[in-house]
């Protein structure tokens, strides 16, 4: 069971890839699909590895993603 979760607001994403690159446990990958603005948002490919560290949230210039630990 993952310690944390990551939430993505795909429509805000501009596909810069910061979150994917700097997630320490490689939870994310850029999706091949487009959002309505034409960017590739990230996809969660390894949810179980998410620590909820929120580094993705600190990097994301578009406030489109964040991570958090589950309560308890």
């Amino acid at each position: 069971m993952a310690k944390g979760f990551v939430a993505i607001n795909v429509e805000r994403c501009k596909g810069c890839g910061f979150c994917v690159e700097f997630c320490p446990t490689r939870v994310l990958t850029l999706s091949s699909a487009f959002n309505t603005k034409g960017y590739h948002p990230p996809n969660v490919m390894a949810a179980e590895k998410c620590s909820g560290c929120d580094l993705c949230g600190m990097y994301c210039p578009d406030f489109a993603i964040f991570g958090a630990r589950y309560a308890r």
């Binding site: 993952a2 979760f5 990551v6 939430a7 993505i8 607001n9 795909v10 429509e11 805000r12 999706s31 699909a33 487009f34 959002n35 309505t36 948002p41 969660v44 949810a47 998410c50 929120d54 949230g57 406030f63 993603i65 964040f66 958090a68 589950y70 309560a71």
Partner: peptide
């Protein structure tokens, strides 16, 4: 792809918000 069709394979608590949001004027995003 819209928000509705996105599948996020982890359990996001219903009350989870991006910690940056309370510090932003969200009506200007």
């Amino acid at each position: 792809m819209s928000e509705q069709t996105l599948e996020i394979p982890c359990n996001i608590p219903a009350d989870a918000v991006n910690p940056v949001e309370p510090f932003l004027r969200m009506d200007r995003m």
